[in-house]
Amino acid sequence: MVKILLFGAAADAAGTREFELQLSDVRTLGNLWPLLEDRHPGLSPMRDTLAFAVNGEYARMDDRVSPGDEVAVLPPVSGG
């Protein structure tokens, strides 16, 4: 199980702020993305603008995601 958190415009696009994915093996973030898209197709058009965090730290698409991890979907930040 991987917990997926969504923020800002990504939460709007998915229609949810949080969901869980069944994951029995270790994947890369890049391999996880199609599962997110399948579950919430509204995310697809945003793909190129998104950043990701695994367990609270920015992650690249070749970084690993293991069962029990928390993955955050982050649109372009706009603080300040």
Binding site: T49, P75, S78, G79, G80
Partner: peptide, 29 residues
Amino acid sequence: IERIKEIVPIWKREVWSDGYVWVGSQVDT
């Protein structure tokens, strides 16, 4: 302030009288 705008995961939306706009995402209602 420049680093806050680059790396801190904070998002703002402008709430208008007729909907809202996520700043920086080109997504609005």
